[in-house]
């Protein structure tokens, strides 16, 4: 999957996590869900289930209520209290049949409640139904993060993704680079050739990003004629190479609406050689300063700002 572009719904074989202390239930579900297009993960107690819910990103959780140590209500409460697992639909499987137990489970956020002993065919169709709903919700959530004109991720996605990437980079001491890309004199293209021509340029740059970026890079339309490119596991030196390729590819495009007018961009790049204790916002500010420097020093170039110092690895286009 190229993280830069909108991709088909990727969760084609979702994971269903079963949290139940009964080995029989695990065996039975494994047999009964064998031919479903899903992966079945299992946990035999609440603590293990919570860990797996965080790490395995299940599409749904099947949760027993009557478990020793931590009961299912507590597991459900913790799943819904944790932002990482809050949105995972939970189907309760329980021998507790009182109305109050059901009310409590739904109040805590369960989407369905199946009483034991359960009919396995009924369970199978309820799982299918929950998975369908999960896919629809994910598709809607994904579409809400896509820029309609370019098909790139939008600013809302960038904000979340960037924060996550900075956090992961700090935690795992991995390199990370961020590029802010701004089309040069874009307003004059709109003013001279009209907005359809401007839109074509925005789409053209997005195609360049899709073509020139690596699989793990995340390209976003930040707003207007400004784009961002998150490059995980990439030092500023390597990221500068990617940015140079982008500028070269953009400059080589012949634009049908204005073949006489080339289009260029300026890029501000920020990243540390070693892990720096920098917030996502501070890092973004550094990239913005580098972009400003690129504009001030003549446009159509990459300026790299190493955290803590300014090294204008500028290259005139």
């Amino acid at each position: 999957m190229n993280a830069t572009t909108l991709h088909p719904f990727e969760d084609s074989q979702p994971t269903v996590l079963l949290i139940d202390d009964s080995v029989d239930v695990h065996r039975l579900l494994k047999a009964r869900l064998r031919y479903e297009d899903l992966k079945l993960a299992g946990a035999s107690n609440g603590k293990e289930g919570l860990e797996q819910a965080r790490t395995a990103s299940p599409a749904i959780v099947l949760l027993d209520l009557d478990m020793p140590d931590m009961d299912g209500f507590e597991v459900l409460r913790r799943l819904k209290d944790d932002p990482a697992t809050l949105d995972i639909p939970v189907i309760v499987l329980s021998g507790l049949q009182s109305a109050q137990d059901k009310v409590t489970a739904f109040d805590l956020g369960a989407v369905d409640y199946i009483t034991k002993p359960f009919n396995l065919t009924e369970l199978r169709v309820r799982v299918r139904s929950a998975l369908r709903l999960h896919r629809l919700v994910q598709m809607l959530a994904q579409r809400a993060q896509i820029d309609g004109l370019t098909g790139l991720w939008n600013r809302a996605h960038f904000n979340k993704r960037w924060t996550d990437e900075v956090s992961a980079c700090t935690r795992h001491h991995r390199p990370l680079s961020l590029a802010l890309i701004d089309l040069d004199h874009f307003k004059t293209i709109n003013d001279t050739y009209g907005h359809p021509a401007g839109d074509a340029v925005l789409q053209g740059l997005s195609r360049v990003l899709q073509r020139e970026c690596r699989q793990e890079d995340v390209g976003c339309r930040y707003g207007g004629e400004e784009f961002t490119l998150i490059m995980p596991d990439t030092t500023p030196t390597d990221a500068a190479g990617v940015c140079e390729r982008i500028l070269a590819a953009l400059a080589s495009i012949s634009w049908p609406r204005h073949p006489e007018r080339a289009v260029t961009a300026s890029i501000g790049l920020a990243g540390p050689d070693v892990t720096a204790d920098l917030s996502a916002d501070q890092w973004l500010d550094e990239a913005d300063r580098a972009l400003y420097a690129a504009k001030q020093s003549g446009r159509n170039r990459v300026v790299t700002r190493l955290i803590g110092q300014v090294t204008p690895m500028a290259k005139a286009g």
């Binding site: 009964s22 029989d24 239930v25 039975l28 009557d66 020793p68 021998g95 034991k116 002993p117 359960f118 396995l120």
Partner: peptide, 20 residues
Amino acid sequence: ARLVHQLKSAGSGYGFPGIA
């Protein structure tokens, strides 16, 4: 109580409703 509860669930799941 736990063992009997598990047997009830298993009896039904494995197709022995009488045991359940």
